[in-house]
Design a protein around this nucleic acid. Structure first.
Lengths: 242, 242
DNA sequence: GAAAACATGATTGCATGCACTTTGCCCCTG
DNA sequence: CAGGGGCAAAGTGCATGCAATCATGTTTTC
């Protein structure tokens, strides 16, 4: 079972020094650095020195280095031999590719999920959709953040229900970026209503096991998001024009 | 342009990967172990001890460990904390998922490639297709191996021409498995002829920039392979029924 | 006799040390 | 003053050491 755990918030402030052996140091560093890259805290081109990271997380250079290697294998940083890791530049083409891949992968996942979703799965998705609708009626920053988290969980849950480990991994790898690009900040009321309706349509398709419908709804859902993004790219990541 | 030797990856920039020049010990170990896993030399469940690998490759445990971490991030092995890395079991469902993903990703890549292929690209693919046709007329083991290598290169080249780094990475990650499952060993003359014709049809679509045709041809190409595989799974990887 | 507890051996995970590469600055030369 | 060579600082990449953890076989206890 995949980590159905908490939201993507890294427990940045762990009071005291819980030098817990056995706590997965590599994974923690990996998540923290990835979060900083996605949030723009570490701008593209930044040199990530192993010693620096090690010092900050109070560990040695070995786990820091291994976390960097993992980030490299996922495409977040480029590792140049004997020179270290550099935060990768996300170009406009990168973002567009991500949307293309989402438009390819997620409808496929939705169709599979429609064929496999249990009543329990549908109930979970409905709970998420209800929460999102509640949050969507507010414009407070915290509710918008919560909406992004819930939306993330909703889509990941569908990928999980689809039941293919590689498909799920691809979607999750692809999805990271979207979280940053798509902050719900630019949604009009109409956009928001349509997005919420898409979720309900998806759930409906899941309940009746209608794979073709789920596929179509998800595709339109993604393509809408893509269009919204392409129309106003300045709202997302500031691109490095190099 | 260096001679494209046995290494299927020339100078193509594969972002995020750690394919460095020189004494890249990690990448070498990574490739070697992956090859053994795919070839069945290391059966599922095998415990990969860091010290053992280190000794065999005459390096220390650190790069061996890091190669294992990379393999884990790609799903080839499972790393259990404080217990080490174990070769992952490939179930029938895993293979079927791989074919599903290929049937999803590669037609997409083919369509993109059709819109972007240069005359140079088309010429390269034609050269590969010609070589494959020559090799396909023989039944010697070496020619069959060569055919697999050429086919691999053909499909990867298309993914490369498609021009999306993540798409290319997904396809390459997915493709590894197929190399083992699909050894051309079970091809009838008719299957072989059809496969070769698909390649020519693809090239034709690339030359005329017909994305829809390229998509359709690739999809039928993959689904044919999938069907052939599903019909006689015993010809490929021996599944671990756990 | 069976189950629990202990001791032992093996292995992982992290820390640290060291050689090699790269880079940037300074000095020297023309 | 411009260009080239060399030197030093920094940082990576790999080797090695050590404590914590887990598996296994033996002993102890009921």
């Amino acid at each position: 079972m995949t980590d159905a755990g908490r939201d993507g918030k890294p427990d940045a402030e762990t009071p005291g020094t819980v030098e817990g052996r056995g706590s997965d140091v590599i994974a923690r560093i990996h998540r923290a650095i990835r979060q900083r890259i996605l949030s723009g805290d570490l701008p593209p081109g930044t040199h990530l020195a192993a010693a620096e990271i090690a010092g900050e997380f109070r560990v040695s250079r070995t786990p820091a280095r291994e976390a960097l290697l993992l980030l490299a294998s996922q495409g977040f940083v480029d590792v140049i031999p004997n020179r270290g890791a550099y935060v990768r530049n996300w170009s406009r083409e990168d973002i567009e590719e991500v949307f293309d891949l989402r438009a390819l992968l997620e409808p496929h996942a939705a169709a599979r999920a429609a064929s496999r979703a249990s009543a329990q799965d549908v109930a979970e998705l409905e709970a998420l959709a209800s929460e999102m609708e509640t949050a969507s009626r507010s414009r407070s920053a915290s509710d918008r953040d919560r909406l992004a988290v819930l939306n993330d969980r909703f889509h990941r849950r569908i990928a999980s229900i689809a039941g293919g480990p590689r498909l799920e991994r691809f979607i999750n790898d692809t999805y990271e970026l979207v979280l940053q690009a798509w902050t719900f900040g630019t949604f009009s009321d109409e956009d928001m209503a349509r997005s919420m309706m898409h979720h309900r349509d998806l759930i409906s398709a899941f309940r009746t096991g209608d794979a073709a419908l789920a596929h179509a709804v998800m595709e339109s859902h993604i393509l809408n998001a893509r269009r919204r993004y392409v129309d106003r790219p300045e709202a997302g990541i500031d691109f490095a024009e190099d």
